[in-house]
Design a protein around this nucleic acid. Structure first.
Length: 269
DNA sequence: TACAATGTTTTAAG
DNA sequence: CCTTAAAACATTGT
């Protein structure tokens, strides 16, 4: 599921473990999730370490641990990929088939599951923020995500379809397939158009739509998976037969930039 | 059976 | 060096 709002929801699933010490680590060594780190480092460093706090940035998550009385941090980075989830289980939880990482604490277990294994675990120890958490692009809902920045990015990728450009995490951290469709629909732009072909008015509308969809998603889905507003494309897109909330016409499902794209031709030009 | 699934990385081509 | 398109990754569900 995970795009910006869902990732933030899953970040908070581990909140019950904040302030508590990890007593044991169980992981499925050799699975694709651990292709970017050495699982032995998690085993060596996380037991006896206390979960201090967590952060989300776009689709990426960072959990910080530290052993009492020691200086160095342990930095655990997670990406949920296509099917990753975080959840909190009771003490003594037995890892199920796709529970690839389980951090046991006294009273609970923090679980990272991911059937498709497109997710990723990163890990580092030290006082410095690890390289993979530095120099991330401005979050869409921050003041650093300016109209000017978006216009530069759009010009740089002028020959790419709007759909492909909006999916690029260096420009729009956290946007995924459904959010990009929602944004294109709201901005009334054909997602297959070249990014460089948008008029000034269309670029302005696109910028506002990006911020609006992220802002509302953050105050609905990210809280407890509650639904976004009833007039969103979101509610129509999941099964064939959906209708455009604006025109009432049948939605179309086409491949754009290699992804199934739900859009309303009468509404998007 | 065959295809698609809310994502990224690698490879190849322009 | 830069941008863009397509394949690959692993598993499940329709």
């Amino acid at each position: 599921m995970p795009e910006l709002a869902e990732v933030e929801f899953f970040r908070k699933e581990w909140d019950p473990g904040v302030g508590h010490v990890v007593t044991a680590v169980a992981l499925h060594q050799g699975t694709r999730l651990f292709r970017s780190c050495a699982p032995v480092l998690l085993r060596e460093n996380l037991p006896r370490a206390r979960l201090i706090r967590s952060e989300a940035h776009g689709k990426r998550l960072l959990f910080r641990f530290r052993k009492d009385g020691e200086e160095a941090w342990s930095w655990l980075g997670l990406h949920l990929g296509m099917s990753g989830k975080l959840r909190c289980e009771r003490d003594g939880h037995r890892a199920e088939k796709h529970d690839h990482l389980v951090l046991a604490q006294r009273g609970r277990a923090l679980v990272f599951s991911d059937p498709r294994q497109f997710g990723r675990v990163e890990f580092a120890v030290g006082s410095e923020t690890p390289a993979w958490w530095r120099n991330l692009p401005p979050p869409i809902l921050s003041s650093r995500f300016t109209r000017e920045r978006m216009e530069l990015f759009l010009a740089r990728h002028g020959r790419a379809p709007v759909k492909a450009m909006l999916l690029m995490q260096e420009g729009f951290p956290g946007l995924g397939n459904w959010m990009v469709d929602e944004i294109s629909w709201r901005a009334q732009i054909d997602p297959a158009r070249a990014a460089g072909s948008l008029s000034g008015a269309e670029r302005k509308k696109l910028y506002r739509s990006i911020r609006m969809v992220c802002r509302i998603a953050t105050t609905t889905i990210a809280i407890d998976f509650r639904d976004p507003p009833a007039d969103w494309l979101f509610h129509q897109r999941w099964s064939k037969g959906g209708r455009c909330p604006r025109t009432g016409e049948a939605l179309r499902y086409d491949q754009v930039a290699g992804r199934t794209t739900c859009w309303s031709p009468a509404n998007q030009r």
